[in-house]
Nucleic acid binder design. Structure first.
Lengths: 135, 135
DNA sequence: TTAATTGCAAATCCTTTGCAGATTC
DNA sequence: GAATCTGCAAAGGATTTGCAATTAA
């Protein structure tokens, strides 16, 4: 498995940096961290490395509402987010039933190596009340 | 409800255009359609209108892997997508159990007016075999 | 009237690409 | 040694913003 291409110092560094974070991080963040750690890596290279890993299904990819792409090495503690569209508060939620459903659907459709993204967006209690009181 | 701001010809047009499509569409697509239909509307205005609707929870928002943002008026026939990361094939999947779960989680956390996005990304049968046969 | 909204174009931000030089196999 | 990979900077594409002119209320 994984016979494509050559392995370079930079690719190893990017993968290591990604593994060291349990959360989703952006390419720019990774690049900054690598630079801060003394690694000499170009931003474009970070993008290229992440692109390859993502093609190979080795990382989970997530696109934020503002268009920034976030990456996380697969199989970290897995959970989803419930986000308030008023104040941005984020609540982490586990979803064993959704995981199961995703696996079943994938199998039924003949897909393999499936990852999933789930996002819930709503109004938290506080913001909901703020709306009711609007002028 | 919805007491903010003034109602302009452009806003009405954007909303109408959005309603006329059952699928997700981008701001640029909407703008093109509106122009084609003879409406005189600026692209920035389309973005501003969609932004407001989305703040108010009046549309479902979805961000594609390439960073483009798609919009759909709420409560159209609701389903999710299973996408092949090899060839881009998309399968529509219903998910009553997920809908139920989303509603429950929202309620438990005190959130209201919650919409959700679910995306499954994997390798379809054909692409999976192609990988196995790789040179 | 008069404050909100529009339209345009310039500005931003993330991401991709062209190409010469460095590097892995 | 030869094909691949990197780095830089320039290009690309979607979205946002400044500001004068327009328009809803």
């Amino acid at each position: 498995m994984s016979s494509e291409g050559r392995t370079t110092r930079q690719q190893v560094a990017v993968r290591a940096a990604l593994d060291s974070s349990a959360e989703f991080v952006s390419a720019q963040q990774l690049h900054a961290e690598l630079r801060a750690a003394g690694e000499r890596v170009g931003l474009a290279t970070v993008y290229r490395a992440l692109g390859k890993m993502s093609e190979g299904g080795e990382v989970d990819v997530l696109v934020r509402p503002d268009g920034e792409t976030l990456y996380r090495s697969c199989s970290s503690g897995h959970h989803h987010h419930l986000i308030c569209r008023g104040c941005g508060t984020t609540v982490e939620v586990a979803a064993p039933s959704v995981e199961r459903w995703a696996r079943d659907v994938a199998e039924r459709e003949g897909f393999s190596d499936v990852s999933h993204t789930v996002e819930l967006v709503g109004l938290c209690r506080a913001c909901s009340q703020a709306v009711d009181m609007a002028p």
